[in-house]
Computed example of a mutant assay.
Amino acid sequence: MSKADYPYPEDEFDAISPDAPTGVHRAPRSAWSRWWPFLVVLLVVPVLAYGAVEYLSRTGDLPQSGGGTSQEQPEVPAEEDATGGEGDGTEAPEGEAEAPVPEATTPAPEPVLTTPVAVLNGARVSGLAGRVADELTAAGFTDVTPDNATTALPAESTVYVASEDLRPTADLVAATTGVPTVEVAPDRADGGIVVLLVTDPDA
């Protein structure tokens, strides 16, 4: 209702003091006054949250995803250097020399079973050379020839070998035939090994 439509005459209550407010409307607020509380929340809350997380992580009370709080794992001491000798019980006592490392030995030469072996019968026992030759063949020798002796006979049955390099092979021949004597004699070994029998080794 406007003042022109007011039907009653003005009285003392209609008089307006110049010092009195003319209405209940407030002055318009600035944009800053409306937004600054939100800006404070946006800035202060993350800072407080970050500080809380840092504090809890340092004190070990930060909750874990599986429940409970994080606890520092006990440190496992690193193993002592094996070469240092501390605490491993392998250090040699002071003043005691370490045991020398044995040098690698050269393996003994193996018998050569393809070496020619002649078995000569000088004992006048029928079939002796053939029987002894069969024993050598059964032992693995591949070139064995039985025959009769035509040269001077030694005092006892002997295995003659052409060189010292064939000694392992001659030793195997002697062990197989039962002849105890082995002699290096190139002139009687015929370039290989000769078993000269003057008695029957099995007799």
Rank of each mutant, 00 (worst) to 15 (best):
S30V: 03
N148I: 08
Q73P: 09
I193Y: 03
L113D: 05
V125Q: 00
Y6D: 15
T151I: 04
A129T: 01
A49Q: 08
T151S: 05
Y160H: 07
S163M: 04
N121Q: 09
A129G: 08
P77H: 10
G67A: 07
Y160S: 00
S126Q: 02
E80R: 13
K3P: 06
T158E: 10
P7N: 09
E164P: 13
P186R: 06
S33C: 05
V184R: 11
T142G: 00
D134K: 05
V101L: 03
A118T: 12
Y6E: 15
L39A: 15
T151G: 03
V24D: 07
D5K: 11
R124P: 05
A15I: 13
A27C: 10
D134M: 04
L172A: 03
E80P: 14
Y6C: 14
G178V: 10
D190A: 14
G87W: 14
L62F: 15
Y55F: 10
A104N: 06
L196S: 01
V132E: 03
P63Y: 11
Y8V: 01
G140E: 01
L113M: 01
D165G: 07
Y8C: 04
P28S: 14
V198H: 05
R58G: 13
A139E: 04
G178T: 11
P201D: 02
E183F: 03
D190F: 06
T151P: 03
A170H: 10
V40C: 04
D165Y: 09
V182K: 10
E80Q: 14
W35K: 04
N148D: 05
P180N: 10
A82N: 12
